[in-house]
């Protein structure tokens, strides 16, 4: 019997980000329009595995998900042990642009979730011409914090377990238990302090209020989709953000939470396929 192989393949990419050598892990499947997927804070590219195994998507899109520096199977930069990891708007934007350039992607679509969604808004603000469409999942210009991130990295609380327990409530109660727990497992596997360091970008450095009004969707179409059970980035947060961006297309997703692509892949598919079809129909690959 032939081995039962998933369709995506993984490789390591050597590149410089802001002058620092990195070795990033990425997986990809399919061919056509490049679609770069950005995972949530404290997680990794596995969140997009269902998109990479969906022939309806991979027949038209080259789906690529990389593990951000310090995440998943990407090797942290030399000297990491002497550094406290902190993601910033500048470092995150630089990593995405460096990755796309190193892979020589021609005006890719970028789809990001949570912090990935927030940075997609920043790409729309500052670098729209480099992309053929942008998809922001669970994204807003600003969100009210709902816990103290100091609990995420301290010796008397298990970092992986507390990260997973905190974010578990962002998953919709309708999501299949197997998908819920796979999503949580990825959070349990993050490096020490990495989720906290990602949230520095979210909480301290990435406030895009006012700035989103400068987004020009005629340069690059922008889609925003948020799950109704996401109380971190609420539907109201996303709708408020979209209302400030002429031409932005927004949708609230029923029975989904903060991790639509991994917590309930079948339900998310119903929402993302029409968006991707629209992008494909208006795009020449």
């Amino acid at each position: 019997m032939a081995p039962a192989l998933d369709p995506m393949v993984g490789r390591y990419l050597r590149l410089d980000i802001d002058g620092t050598p990195h070795r990033l892990y990425f997986e990809e499947a399919g061919s056509g329009i490049p679609l770069v997927c950005l995972h949530t804070a404290g997680a990794d590219g596995r969140q997009f595995r269902h998109l990479m195994a969906d022939p309806e998507i991979t027949s038209r899109f080259r789906v690529i998900a990389f593990d951000m520096p310090w995440h998943g199977k990407s090797t942290p930069p030399d000297g990491w042990e002497k550094t406290e990891y902190r993601l910033t708007t500048a470092s995150y934007t630089a990593a995405i642009r460096a990755f796309c350039q190193a892979l020589e992607l021609d005006r890719p679509v970028v789809m990001g979730c949570s912090i990935g969604g927030r940075i997609v808004l920043n790409l729309a603000i500052g670098h729209a011409a480099e992309f053929r469409a942008l998809v922001a999942l669970e994204a807003a210009d600003f969100q009210q914090p709902w816990y103290d991130t100091a609990w995420l990295h301290r010796p008397d609380v298990h970092g992986g377990e507390v990260c997973a327990a905190l974010i578990s409530g962002l998953i919709a109660p309708q999501s299949p238990p197997v998908s819920r727990h796979e999503t949580l497992w990825m959070y349990m596997q993050g490096g020490p302090g990495i989720f906290k360091g990602d949230l520095y970008f979210y909480r301290m450095d990435g406030d895009l209020r006012e700035k989103v009004t400068s987004i020009d969707t005629s340069l690059c179409p922008l889609y925003l989709l948020t799950g109704e059970y996401d109380f971190s980035c609420t539907a109201e947060d996303t709708l408020r953000t979209a209302s400030q961006i002429p031409g932005a297309q927004v949708q609230v997703m029923k029975e989904l939470g903060h991790f639509p692509m991994s917590e309930n892949p079948a339900r998310f598919r119903e929402y993302i396929l029409p968006v991707l079809a629209k992008i494909a129909s208006t795009s020449s690959s």
Binding site: Y147, D156, V157, V162, A165, G169, L170, P173, Y229, F231
Partner: peptide, 25 residues
Amino acid sequence: HDLFALTKRGAASLEGDLRPLLQNL
């Protein structure tokens, strides 16, 4: 639907030494 959804909307609160709570969240 979640304890922190309740606290965020102001319908619940957490007080005291939260360490045993967070250790077993």
